[in-house]
Amino acid sequence: MAVDETELKRLMVTALAGDAGAYRVLLDQVSRYLRGYFTAKLTRYGRGAAEAEDLVQEVLLAIHTRRHTYNPDEPFTPWMHAIARYKLIDHLRRTDAMQANLPIDDVGEIASQGDHVQVESGYDLQRLLSRLPEKMRRAIQCVKIDGMSVAETAKRCGMSESAVKVNVHRGLRALAAAIGREDRT
């Protein structure tokens, strides 16, 4: 799948300034690209394409928690690609010993799914969240899932606004760290 560097970079720069709409469009486009990339790579290494969606989500989380490492003076695509490649190699190394190859027709079936099918990973969000410390879980639940503002959350949880932001940030980082090590359901 072709990527439009100019468009992605514009979205990223806008998103880094705090534009949620641009960020959402960006992550959506990136996830489509990543899906194709990982499916192709995993198939080539003789691995099940079912792992592709896990990797897509792992990379989305990595992009999010490490988006401050993007330098707006440089192109976006190589930055994203370096993360995807790093996570792919890490995944292959980590799962090398324990993975059995999937039959080849499985691969074809998944690869032929359309872009608009709701794609799901083996991760269970609620279970991942339940392992986070209470404060982080509540902060993520309120701000990121229920969409409450930081000020509202602060009032409801009896935390300061900066504590809410810190807990969201740390919680997502913990989630990103946990997701690579999680056994798939």
Partner: peptide, 20 residues
């Protein structure tokens, strides 16, 4: 977890980032 759900979570209430 659906990828769309994850994207929605990540893109809700995003904080601006200091580029330096």
């Amino acid at each position: 977890m659906k990828t769309d759900d994850l994207i929605r979570i990540l893109s809700t209430n995003v904080e601006p980032i200091d580029r330096r």
